[in-house]
Structure formats: structure tokens, C-alpha cells
Design a protein around this nucleic acid. Structure first.
Lengths: 263, 263
DNA sequence: CGACACCTTGAAGAGGTTCAAGAAATGTGG
DNA sequence: CCACATTTCTTGAACCTCTTCAAGGTGTCG
């Protein structure tokens, strides 16, 4: 029903409903307008009136392209803006002094990164593109101004931050009390659910990250991730071909991710 | 130098610099005023002018007492307010369907709880007092109104949320990539540092939570927490008498919490 | 004083890690 | 476009950290 292959030639996730212009036009020449953006319902509040919509078009003045493997921002960078992901896929990670680092999240189109920077005026994590990406730059001062004047925008900003807090609570639950299979099952369900929201298949996906990155996020070693994938495949729950995953039995994944205490 | 026993008869942490009135006066009769509160510098932004200070006094209309072991709010409760802790000590925890629950944080005087509720208009975790406590109720609508009108307040609210996000990033690093001793060392250092900020000793503390709650927070079993305490004690790093902890060698704890890759 | 919650410690066991080797995919330069 | 280097993934075997199960000790509160 839904098209699992709604990606461009690089396999990137490009859009919710249609594909943006592919011609190599100068970006500066393209009018950046949230009011016309097909991702608006993911980044922006609903229920804006015409006037408010125009106000919001003043928020994003520039877009920025980020090449695969490079950082949108680094730990320590001055904080100036939040970023709404337009295309591509990111990871955020924090680094300990001894070099260990921990992936704290994976972000896809329509999601916001950069919230970590607000508190100290400097970022405290790295945001790295896992595939060529483009983000909408939202200067934070302008965002604050806007949310003083447009109530729904204010509430929206607060919800975005609260959502991130709640998401991290969930990750803490995962890291603190789940076993390897439960973690990976929960991870796959989370990814597919978010992809599904964006119009993709709920049963087929292409992982944008390595086993090591998945492991870091889930508090496991890459070998454990690989083994657990293999186990799921043996059990007929998923099909694995490198980064291509087919989910054959969603219910089984759900049972694994949220085990029921037998009554 | 600093008085580690700046607690009231119940061992509660009561204040930053002096002790509030102990007489059993009706709370409604006491004028609630942030401008006079000795914890203001912990909850509220600095650099408010006189006018802004008075505006802020309109924010907190009521205080609420929470008995030890009872909840300030539950998972599922309607979200109405944020709470600034005035006295006492809280834990927040999320519950999985199967009954497991995960402590997501411990909060002390001057800290804010309730941020999880914003995104869905309902709370998604429980906030439970670990000792008799009192909180300042900050109706969120009023807080939003205030932050529309007082810029420093707006920025402050954003920083509080961002700080929580950054804190949780740190916990994810801990849960995802540290070993038991590292976790407990980091935990002790974090607690004492926060207590120190509030005028208490940096080397002596009384734990407000059980070994099980510490374990839940750190992703360990209570036995492991207990054993690790014992190990630290054997090594002469701390002294443990039930919930009374004396830190004898802070540097050792730091070395354990952030191991250096030998050069 | 007795009941209850909390903490400590030991011994056995399991789940995940570490180390290692090889296979598959991907990227690079001639 | 192919050869080669590099990265990524898989799988096995030994090991280790933490958990589980169990028992006893300590402290607290009605």
C-alpha cells in the first residue's frame, strides 16, 4: 500500500508526499517557505492562521547542506540555531573524556536537533549526518521572538523540548532495564513507526547507521547487535541483508520489546 | 567548613543559607513570594529588575506539601503545572507495561519537575517524594504568559528544559557505556556536587534513596550497588554506614568515573 | 518487642563482551 | 572499469561482569 521505496537515487528519505525539485538550482534563489513545505506538519504547529503562517515564513532564512559523515555542529560549538531536518538522517552523540562515545539519538526528516545547546550557549554533543542531508536553520533568537508573539508557536516549542525529554526517559528505561533482544526489538519498532509516519512502509527499512552505531545507542557491542539480528532472522521474525531489513512478524517484535508478565 | 548537617530534625535538606520558620503556621497565611525566597537563585533567572521580580511573585500562588512515599504526580495525570522543589527530595520514574520501572532522576531543592507533562498534556512519569517535601506550584499557562512578557524568564524556561535534555544525555552515556564502579562513582560525585551547590559538604552525605532505587537509576541490581559500595569502602575511598556516606578520596572517585586512556 | 523493610555477603549461573578470523560490501586510484 | 584497500558485518570460543538465588544481619516503626 505504502511505497517503501519513496527515496531518491541515493536511497535518501526525501519527502512526505512528493519529491522536491531535483535540478541543481542555486539554493539561495529558492524561496524558503515553511508555508509551502510538505514537512510542515512534522516541524511546525497545526492550526496557524494565514497571518501566523506568514510570520513563520520569516523564521527560516537559510537552509544548509550537510555531507554524509560531516557534522552539523560539534560538541563545544557556539549555539545559535535549532535545525529542522529536511532531508537525510542524523545521529547525535556525546563523548566522554576517555574517548568513549555514546549515540544519544537518530533523527530523521521533520525532527529538530540542537536543543542541547540552549542551556550553556554551546552545544554539548555532535550531530553527524549519516547520509547527505539538508536542514532548515532556525536562529534561536528569532524563534524566541516568534514564540513570544505567536502563542501556538510558543506551545509548540515547549512541546518539542518536552518530547525530547520524554523520548530520553524511554531510552533510559531501555538502557537501564532491558536485555539485548528487547532493546533491538524496541529499536526496530521505533524506527519503523517513525518511518511509517513519514509515509514509508512499516515493514521494510534501510538502516542508515552501522551496527556499531546501533550498538552504541542501545548500550551493546556491535557483535551483540549482529548476533541478535541473526537470531531474529533465524526465528523468522525479520529478514536481514546487510542494512536492508524486512520485518516479517511485527507482533513477535512487540512481544519481545514489551514482555508480558504471564497472568 | 561547610556544615554537612544543615538539615532539620527529619534530616531534610531545608535551605541554602538559613532555616525557614518552623512554627506550624497555616501555609495559606504565608505570603508566597519568590522575591524573598532563599532558593530563588536556583529556580529563577538572575538579573531581574524590580518590576520583573514583582511579576514573578504572581507566578507561584500555592505551595503543596508531599508526604514521604507519596506522589506529587502520577503517570497519566493531567498536566497543569511545573513544580519547583522547596524542601525534600524526589525521584522520578517511568514504568513499562510489564511492571518494571526505571528511576529517571533524583531531584532536590531548587530543581524543577514536571517537564515531561508538557508534550501530551499528561504526565508520563511518576514523581515520588523520598522524604516529606514541599513544592512551589507554577501553573504552566501562567508561566507561558510570563515568559512571553519577560524575556529573561523565557530564556530561563528554555534553559531549564535544555538542561534536563543534557542531563539525560549524560545518563545515557552512563547507562550505555560505563561499568558498575564507574556508574556509582559518577553518581556519588554528581550528588555531592549538587549538594555542595546548596551549601552542604562535598564529602559527606545522607542518601535519601534505597539501594534498589540507586540501582534502578544506574541500571544495576541492588546487590551490585551494595557490593560496589563495599568495594569502595574496602579501598578506602568512602565510608559507608547504611545511608550515611563519607567520601574520603574524591580524586579516586573522579579517576574511577572518568578513566583516562593511559598515554 | 516483634514485624517489616532494607542492606550485606556468598556461590552459582547467564548474558554480553572480548578477541580473533574471515566474508561481504564499499570506496579509491590507476 | 578493474584491482586493491578499507570499512563493515558475521560467527565462533573463551572469558568476565553482573545477575540471580539464598541466607542472615541491621535498623526502624508501630
Amino acid at each position: 500500500m505504502l511505497n517503501p521505496a519513496a527515496t531518491n537515487k541515493n536511497g535518501q528519505i526525501v519527502s512526505l508526499k512528493d519529491t522536491p525539485a531535483r535540478q541543481p538550482i542555486k539554493l539561495q534563489a529558492v524561496k524558503v517557505a515553511c508555508s509551502n513545505c510538505n514537512l510542515r506538519e512534522l516541524c511546525m504547529p497545526l492550526g496557524l492562521n494565514t497571518d501566523e503562517l506568514h510570520r513563520i515564513d520569516e523564521l527560516v532564512t537559510t537552509r544548509r547542506k550537510v555531507k554524509r559523515g560531516t557534522a552539523l555542529f560539534h560538541d563545544g560549538d557556539k549555539f545559535t540555531s535549532l535545525y529542522a531536518i529536511r532531508t537525510g538522517f542524523f545521529k547525535t552523540c556525546v563523548a566522554a573524556e576517555d574517548g568513549r562515545d555514546q549515540v544519544t539519538g537518530f533523527q530523521m526528516a521533520g525532527e529538530i536537533v540542537g536543543l542541547d545547546g540552549i542551556v550553556h550557549d554551546h552545544h554539548t554533543c555532535n550531530a553527524v549526518a549519516l547520509e547527505d542531508a539538508e536542514v532548515c536553520v532556525m536562529p534561536f533568537e528569532r524563534l524566541e521572538e516568534l514564540s513570544r508573539e505567536v502563542n501556538v508557536m510558543q506551545r509548540h516549542l515547549h512541546k518539542i523540548m518536552s518530547r525530547e525529554i520524554v523520548r530520553e526517559n524511554g531510552v533510559m528505561l531501555l538502557l537501564g532495564s532491558m536485555r539485548a533482544e528487547e532493546r533491538l526489538a524496541a529499536f526496530l519498532l521505533n524506527l519503523t513507526q517513525r518511518l511509517h509516519t513519514r509515509g514509508f512502509s512499516a515493514s521494510e527499512l534501510v538502516l542508515r547507521m552501522t551496527r556499531e552505531e546501533i550498538g552504541s545507542y542501545l548500550g551493546l557491542k556491535l557483535e551483540t547487535v549482529s548476533r541478535t539480528f541473526s537470531k531474529f532472522a533465524e526465528d523468522g521474525i525479520i529478514e536481514v541483508k546487510q542494512r536492508h531489513i524486512c520485518i516479517l512478524d511485527t507482533e513477535a517484535l512487540k512481544r519481545i520489546a514489551t514482555p508480558q508478565t504471564c497472568p
